[in-house]
Design a binder for these strands. Structure first.
Lengths: 246, 246
DNA sequence: AATCAGAGTATGTCCTAACAAACGGACATG
DNA sequence: CATGTCCGTTTGTTAGGACATACTCTGATT
């Protein structure tokens, strides 16, 4: 007998049904109720058991496949992925990541200015000549240890930003509070060695390895809201992600 | 008048209708027919124009939203993203990436062995004690310039691999020919400085920056097929990707 | 005994049909 | 003039059905 997935679906909840199923199966996998490698019942039976239509059930499983927790094969069935799957890279700020992990990051604002955008910034954010942006550099520490040196440019026609705010909140959190709905970001990850400016701030040696990230984020109205250039200590930070076929 | 998206849909083609739409819209965006920032007609009208049902049209647009070419907003509509969106990180090998970009990579096989898997490899590939794997290290050059130093472990119960094959084909191409259908991979990207072994092979100095990537790939039967540890010259390689909300 | 064909099963694609919810602008009201 | 309400538009969610296709296993044929 297959695993009985005793999910409870609340049809009066504002949470979409398919998402309730996603959460239920995720929980079942993380608690070990659904073992890695085990096969799920077929879509139609599962849908019937939960009194859902097949498209709804399938949409839920689609999400789980995309997030890498399940693999499907036509004519065969759907399995829980046997490996420990890490959460795919998400559109979140480092601050969010760290607080989610239970750490307590602190932020030092090194510079802060409200200035006219220079040419590269105007291009990255699609701004007209003369447009102004917030420009600031921050140093993020976790447990007193420096982790990241971040330089950002944010368009100023969205929400007010000041130095005090940046000390207590992540940039993305501030922007979200300001009504920005992020939709996507393009980023590039590479490596450099620490220079004489970066090394002392990150409390490492010039010549040590740093992970670099350049990112530009777009909101739901298609505006390029923010662009940044971050460097992380190579000995304490790396990017984990799950790539899914198709 | 909105952009007339004169897509042609071939209902006798084996290519799914929704995918034909995806390709058509992608092409329209890349050729500039659909300008960045422009609004698409609504889903229902577009579907009607192509004689498709709304779910099919919507599935196509879902994919485009996921790949970062479009952004949607309820009550408003769907827009072409204004920024140049890079192709999201895909489940492909470096060799594929380079050949797609028109470069002509060459591969040197530095070591090749068919050996018993050690403990970390057994764990990464979920193998039993005593299981054997192919283990090899390769140096990849583009235009005569070294780019990547790659060390891989591949389970041996899938397809035969030999040194000559590795010289002429990418690993993923070999495995796909062997019947492997990759579904997902988890990877981690970081930074180190080149050591005395890596530097001469990559024709760089010890102490220069390298991008590191560790990856484990899973196929459609849930098997962990391959795991590898690659290093790239930091001055000539970086990972680009698009992150999409939700 | 080995190979091939077919049945059964599960996912993949596609359709019609509704209703819900969020957004933006127009209009009415204080 | 400012504010709140309503309404049309557009995407979001859900249902139920039908057929296609790929895979596995089993039984029949050579």
């Amino acid at each position: 007998m297959a695993n009985q997935l005793r999910l409870s679906i609340d049809r009066s909840s504002p949470v979409p049904l398919y998402h309730q199923v996603v959460q239920g199966i995720e929980a079942a996998i993380h608690t070990g109720l659904l073992e890695p490698g085990s096969r799920l019942e077929n879509e139609i039976d599962l849908a019937a058991q939960l009194n859902l239509s097949r498209p709804t059930m399938r949409k839920a499983m689609d999400e789980l496949v995309r997030s890498g927790l399940l693999v499907r094969k036509r004519g065969v069935g759907t399995q829980v992925v046997s490996s420990q799957v890490r959460r795919p890279l998400e559109l979140s700020s480092l601050y969010d990541d760290l607080t989610n992990n239970g750490s307590k990051p602190t932020t030092e604002v090194l510079t802060f200015a409200h200035i006219e955008a220079d040419a590269p910034t105007r291009e990255a954010l699609h701004l007209a000549t003369g447009a102004k942006v917030y420009h600031f550099t921050r140093l993020r520490k976790v447990g007193g240890k420096p982790l990241a040196l971040m330089e950002n440019w944010v368009r100023d026609d969205i929400t007010h930003i000041d130095e005090d705010l940046l000390k207590t909140q992540g940039l993305y959190s501030i922007l979200r509070s300001g009504g920005v709905n992020f939709r996507l970001a393009t980023q590039r990850i590479g490596a450099v060695v620490a220079n004489d400016y970066q090394a002392p701030l990150l409390e490492t040696e010039p010549g040590s390895a740093l992970v670099t990230m350049e990112r530009t984020a777009v909101d739901d109205t298609g505006r390029n809201v923010e662009t940044g250039h971050h460097v992380y200590r190579g000995d304490s930070y790396s990017f984990e992600m799950t790539l899914v076929q198709r």
